[in-house]
Structure formats: structure tokens, C-alpha cells
Design a protein around this nucleic acid. Structure first.
Lengths: 207, 207
DNA sequence: TACTATACGGAACGGAGGTTCCGCTTGTCA
DNA sequence: TGACAAGCGGAACCTCCGTTCCGTATAGTA
């Protein structure tokens, strides 16, 4: 399962015209970002600000000076993880083998969720009340999934009696599975099973 | 999808030797049970004691006089829902068509989870830190699932390259799906898809 | 009807976690 | 090196929820 490289989080400190951050502030900002990344990776949406601050070696006030809310911080980091997934999805829409491309993408997204719990949490909560920015990211991803799935159906690889909503529901369930399984290989097997379910009998992989 | 009848919650008030409850206390106890059932059904594990007390028309103190903790209350109600599932599972172990029996059971458990969110929450959280009593209930259910699955494999209906752990992981994901989908029929379709994935090619249902 | 054990309501408590505030520190620049 | 804006830490605050406590009400009984 190939994993998608995450673009490094931007540490740019000021747009043109704005004054540059003081050197210590700049160091702290980077430490906070790194700490938040680690905490969200480990605890998903349950990561707490105190933990992030402690890991970064700063006070909570310093965290809030850089990011107005916990949500804003999480979103900044989520974006760095979702953006490459979107790019991968768009690329996969060009793939000649539409069905295979879709199934590969399912594996990628699961793999990425395994190594970054906050992504799994966000995907799993897509139907619940998550903030609008995350809703938007997930919405765009799901839109691409819908397109990919339709292409796979047209190509005859994916079942026509399954709707994009079904796939979305299964993906949300899968995201929860990620948070429950301690073994990533088991998650991969579950994804395999769901892929099997989505293939047409003609396209079924040999047993 | 046939649903399993839930045994009415016991309203027995005192074992022999103990003094009977006062009439008003007895009425309240019943009101609390009914209110808790409704709240857990609607909100799952997120139901809060204040809401239950308000719905029952009593103060929170009265709730706690009957059930020492929220967990104890939830467990009392969960038990009434899980017990018939266990009975159904045991019965299905006698079924001549082992594979079909297992798949039917999957549908039953999903259907029950749809109409009682607390069950979905408990199943979905089986791998997380839920209290020991719930762990026990889920454990017993999963034990039976394991048996049923093995029987279906032996009968040639269910794939041999899938483990009981895989099934358990998928079921936990499915439980989350229940909490995210507003449409129960969509949940049923997802269960169908997973059932398809679990069948051997020979046993595959006609498209 | 009067007495009392039983039961009640709901204010108050406690802990968790997000957020704010403000007195103190420090990097920067002249 | 002195002045000061920028930045810092972390105590305090707020809200939410489960839980406890105690003064008050009342069902049951003589």
C-alpha cells in the first residue's frame, strides 16, 4: 500500500507587508505545529491543548496566540494531510483503469487514516456535527470519491447496484474501524473485503 | 429484516425479604426506566442524566437513588436489548444453513442497532475503554459470532481467508455507520455489501 | 390525625477541557 | 544599554456532566 507524502506544514510567518515574527515566537510556532501534529496523530480529535502545549514546551496562552481555537489548529494540520489525498484523488481520475484506481484510493485513504488518527476521526464524523471547514475538506474528498466510483462503474469494474452514498457510509464505518483496530494490517484486510464487495462478479479478483 | 423482540424491562421492585417500594417510588422507578430507554435510544451513550430525569419528571437525585451510576442504568437497559440478541445467536447456531444463519444475524444486529443507538455505541466502542459489564456482554456476543462464522466457513458458505477478527472489526465499523446514516435502509444495504464480501464465490447470491 | 421512615428535588460539588486575561519577560532596535 | 513593543506563562474562568447531599414532602401506619 503506497502512502501519500504529506506536504510539510507551512511555517511561513508573515505575508508581505506584515512585520516578521520575533525569533522566539517563530521557534514556538514551529514547536506548536510539530507538537500538535504528533498529538493529533496519536489521539485524533481527542488530543487536548494542554498536551500540545506541554509537548511544545510552551504555555497554553502561546498556543492560542497562534491559533484562535483548537479547531483552527486541527484544521491547519488536517489540511496538510487532506490536500495530498485530494491531489491523489484527482490524479486517479486520469487513470486508465478506473475501477482499480478507485480501489487503490480506498486503500490509500485507509492507510493515511491509520497513521494520522485525526483524519480517521474527521472522516468518521463526516455525518455528525464537525465544523464547516472540515465539512468542506471532507465534502471535496467525497465528491471526488463519487466521481471515481462512477467512472469505475462505467468501466464495468464496480457494481452498478451500489450508490455513492453506500460507499460513503462504508468509508465512514471504515474510519471508525481504524480507531478501534490496533493492527494496521487488519484494517487493510477489511478494506480488501469491502473492495471485494464493490467489484462486479466479472471483475472479481481470483480467490 | 426480522427484528428481535425486546423483553420488557423488569420492574420487579424487591427480592423476597426486602420491603416493598413505596407506591410513588415504584411509579418513579418505572418512569425513569422508560425515560432512560427513550433517551439512550435517541442519543446513544451521549444521553445525559439531566435529560433522563426531566423526561421522567423527577429530579436527578431520584434517578441516582435507583441506579448508582449512569453506567449501571445504561447496563440495565442494554441487557434487555442484548439478551434477546444472544438468544437469537444461540438459536442460529442450531440452524441447518450455517452460512445463511450468520448473515441473517448480521442484519438483525444492525437493525437492532438502528433502533437503539446505545447498542450501536457499545458495539462500536468494543475495542475502546467501555466498562467491564458492557465488555462482557459484547464479549459473549462476539464469541457467538465467532462460532457462527466458523460454522458458516465449515459449511462452505463463508470465505475461509477471513478471520473472526476481521468480521469483528467490520461489525464495529458498521456500528459507527449506524450512528452516521439517517436512513436505516442504507445501513441495510451496507450490511448486504459486507455479507457479499464474506460469502465464498460459490455461495455468491445471483446479481 | 399524627408520626416517621421513605423518598424527593435540585442546588452544589468536582473534574475535565477549551478559552481568556494580565502581569512579567525578552528580543529588537536606536 | 535602555526603552518598549512583542511575546510569554499559566492561573483563572467557563461550560458541561456525572455525582452527592441535605432540607423538605409524603405514603403508610397506628
Amino acid at each position: 500500500m503506497s502512502s501519500i507524502p504529506v506536504t510539510p506544514l507551512s511555517t511561513a510567518t508573515h505575508a508581505m507587508g506584515e512585520r516578521p515574527l520575533r525569533a522566539d515566537a517563530q521557534r514556538n510556532r514551529e514547536a506548536i505545529l510539530a507538537a500538535a501534529e504528533a498529538e493529533f496523530q496519536a489521539y485524533g480529535a481527542d488530543a487536548c491543548i494542554d498536551g500540545i502545549a506541554e509537548r511544545a514546551g510552551v504555555g497554553v496562552g502561546t498556543v492560542y496566540r497562534n491559533y484562535a481555537t483548537k479547531d483552527e489548529l486541527m484544521r491547519a494540520i488536517m489540511k496538510a494531510h487532506v490536500e495530498p489525498m485530494l491531489a491523489a484523488a484527482r490524479a486517479s481520475l486520469e487513470d486508465a483503469d478506473a475501477g482499480a484506481a478507485f480501489l487503490t484510493f480506498l486503500h490509500q485513504i485507509a492507510s493515511e487514516s491509520c497513521s494520522f488518527k485525526a483524519l480517521a476521526d474527521t472522516l468518521a464524523g463526516a455525518g455528525l456535527d464537525i465544523d464547516s471547514a472540515k465539512q468542506e475538506m471532507v465534502g471535496e474528498l467525497m465528491g471526488l470519491v463519487r466521481e471515481m466510483f462512477a467512472r469505475g462503474q462505467a468501466a464495468g469494474t464496480l457494481r452498478r447496484d451500489v450508490t455513492a452514498e453506500d460507499v460513503s457510509a462504508l468509508m465512514q464505518g471504515l474510519s471508525h474501524t481504524v480507531n478501534v483496530c490496533e493492527d494496521d494490517r487488519q484494517v487493510a484486510r477489511c478494506v480488501d473485503l469491502i473492495c471485494d464487495a464493490l467489484r462486479t462478479p466479472q471483475a472479481a479478483r481470483p480467490a
